[in-house]
Design a protein around this nucleic acid. Structure first.
Lengths: 187, 187
DNA sequence: TTGACGACAATACGATCGTATGGCTACGGT
DNA sequence: ACCGTAGCCATACGATCGTATTGTCGTCAA
């Protein structure tokens, strides 16, 4: 299932997770994957192509894991909570995932191709959240607005959980997410 | 008022704003500031020291601008809205500021010294927001929780405004902020 | 007057970077 | 049997990096 290309992409993601994007070099990726520089160059012509492929890779992985987790959701409301906790980096979501997308996001501010992938993913995420809101809380008048606010909240929480674990431990992030979801029905 | 050191820090911040942290090198900073490599080394012994000083520099600048903007606030509620719109990158806040702190945040995930400065600033921000909430909406039972949620929302909105201007134009961010603030009184 | 020192500039060093190049091996089609 | 090509490695090239070293001016205390 996992070819040599995916192995390289996993190596890159692992490097980003613990040394940041600045720690990524063709040589480091090759080392981590246990192959030569030439092998990396064979599968991806440039570093940029490797980076873009890695972004698509983490997106694909995320969608797969999401689908699996949501298969156990009893209702749209339950699915919304599962997705929210996952995105917020609350219990169950590894810090590494947040660090990776945070690194990509920062790079997106400077690289148009990376920005395009980021925009596509986040737009898709907002649509998905909006659908869950519309299905789980049909009385809401602006599910798209609710989804956009929720997505922003979750992004901010994820960063806080990853960078400030003592100010924002996962349990607090979970409480805040639940409070916001409760506001969906009340407010 | 602005000595040669501040000039170097401004140069670094300008580089981060339009090429990211990866565009920062001693040589680039020296070039942008119109001095030699040696001058940079004279004021800051290492690149890391320069980076840390730049973070403190943007913090100081931010506090100064904030204090100036808040001096025109009629009430705690008004001050809260001004600060929220500023942090969210809504109309009036430049994209560059968001890109700079986003870059620093991503770097904080990998550099403990940068992380410490980041934590200090964000903790201070949450406290300040909590005070404004407590003053402007005294009936709230958990102003610290409100502040933490608001701060996360604003961080997420700022990133969205900076990276996805068509999904999250400043006006939409402003509407979402206002909706959240309205929920302070209702929910 | 001299001499130390602060504020730079110029240059050098070793490391690492992305990428190009050329060769080797194994295999699949003709 | 043979040729091409996919897959991979070793190595080289030029650029850029952070930092160390050394020198050159002023200014100002003694």
């Amino acid at each position: 299932m996992a070819g040599p290309s995916e192995h390289l992409l996993d190596a890159l993601v692992a490097i980003v997770a613990d040394r940041g994007l600045e720690g990524v070099s063709i040589r480091q990726v090759a080392d981590r994957a246990g192959v030569s520089i030439g092998a990396v160059q064979h599968h991806f012509p440039t570093k940029n192509a490797l980076l873009l492929a890695a972004m698509e890779h983490v997106s694909t992985r995320f969608r797969a894991e999401l689908q699996q987790r949501l298969s156990a959701a009893p209702s749209p409301g339950g699915a919304l909570r599962i997705l929210a906790l996952l995105l917020a980096g609350a219990d169950g979501a590894p810090r590494a995932s947040t660090v990776v997308w945070l690194s990509f996001a920062a790079h997106a501010a400077v690289d148009e191709q990376v920005a395009e992938v980021h925009r596509r993913e986040w737009a898709s995420l907002e649509r998905f959240l909006a659908d869950l809101v519309a299905a789980g809380a049909p009385h809401r008048t602006d599910p798209a607005g609710d989804a956009a606010a929720l997505l922003a909240l979750l992004d901010g929480l994820a960063v806080a959980v990853a960078l400030e674990p003592q100010r924002m431990p996962p349990a607090r992030a979970e409480r805040l997410v639940d409070a916001w979801l409760a506001g969906l029905d009340a407010g």
